[in-house]
Simulated scan of single mutants.
Amino acid sequence: MKKKRHKLTLMTALAGMLLTNSAALAAPAEDSQQFELDTVVVTATKTEKKIKDVPASVSVITANDLAKANIQTLDQALHYVPGMYVKESEGMMGTKISLRGMSQSQVLVLMDGIPLNNGYSGGVNWSNIPIEIIDRVEITKGSFSSLYGTNAMGGVINIITKTDAKNQTIAKGGVGGNGTTTSSFFTSGQSDNNKFHYVITYDKRDVDGYVNQPEQLPGGLRYGKFTTKNENTGIKLIYDFSEGERLSLLRTESDYTYGYYEGGKDKGQRKLELTGINYEKKLDDTKELKVHLGEQNYKNYWQIANGVGPNPNPVKTKEADVSLSWAFNTKNLLTIGVATKEDKGVAIQQCWKPHSDCYH
């Protein structure tokens, strides 16, 4: 049985009277941040603004922050964001978040404009996000439905990938407790004329696991080590036609599997492909055009729970938006645009046969 949901949204936002002290007035005490006031963010207005000039509460996590804290999956970094509640869980459900009391389905998560919220649950699989490709994460709190649609009632988490493609290559590896092994590879560069840039990343993390239940339950359910395997690849290509005109392509592939082995019967997999195309052009000193196309495709999304399954739920999301930002002066900005989004899923009857005979 196929399920399809199509949505067309007209978005208009007027950001007026952006006084130089507006950020101090808008941000409550909980959002005290340790960054320079000249930090530039784009999420709150869809244009580049200094953080002290945006009419919203914004937290920023940089690539340097992720490296210093040795962050393995992005949800680990969200623990340090004021106003954010993070609940970690095992298996396919993954980590759940809440921003100022709003559930995860009401918080829009983007990566270079691609919505990461699952079409079924509304949640995000944080382990499927390549860490090495992240330049910074902007967490904007409060309702931003006028700019981003209904999923942004509680706020927007905008993951911005790297564009500063210096000629460098970095390889890392590590080991840890519970049989944990990690490896990553990062390379970036640019053409001689500085018009073409590329960023390529790969990371892998395997955890041999721990014994979840010391005693075997009836039927051998959830017995044995909880083992996870996570592999991510990402590539970003950028071409600058001229000053203020840029085309970029982002492609990531992620494969996450888990299981209770040594007699256990709970296991699952989610394999995700993301594709995004962005075109930006400054029409003049006051106007900027942005065009975005994106696709989120869960090719494999299945789980076996309590010995029953695999209950596959593949889902694909296609979306696009066009927006025009017009700065009347330094304090007044008008953004207008149109967006469309289609979620398409397939609900497959529960399978009682061995996994290899039911779903591939």
Rank of each mutant, 00 (worst) to 15 (best):
K4S: 15
A15I: 14
M17Y: 14
A23T: 09
L25A: 13
Q33A: 15
K46V: 05
S57P: 08
V58D: 05
S59L: 02
N70F: 06
I71Q: 05
H79P: 02
V86A: 01
V86T: 07
E90P: 02
M102F: 13
S105C: 06
V107R: 05
G123T: 05
R136C: 06
R136I: 01
M153E: 11
A171N: 10
G177R: 11
F186P: 03
T187A: 13
D192Q: 13
K195T: 10
I200C: 11
K204Q: 14
K204S: 15
K204C: 06
D206W: 04
D206H: 12
Q213H: 14
G224P: 03
G224V: 00
E231W: 03
G234C: 06
I238A: 00
S242N: 12
S242T: 14
L250N: 03
Y261N: 11
K267I: 03
G268N: 07
L272V: 11
L272M: 14
I277Q: 07
K282W: 09
D284N: 15
V291H: 01
H292T: 14
E295Y: 03
Q296E: 12
N300F: 06
Q303W: 05
G309K: 00
G309V: 01
T317I: 12
S323N: 11
L333W: 03
L334R: 04
T335E: 07
K341S: 11
H355E: 13
D357N: 01
D357Q: 12
H360E: 13
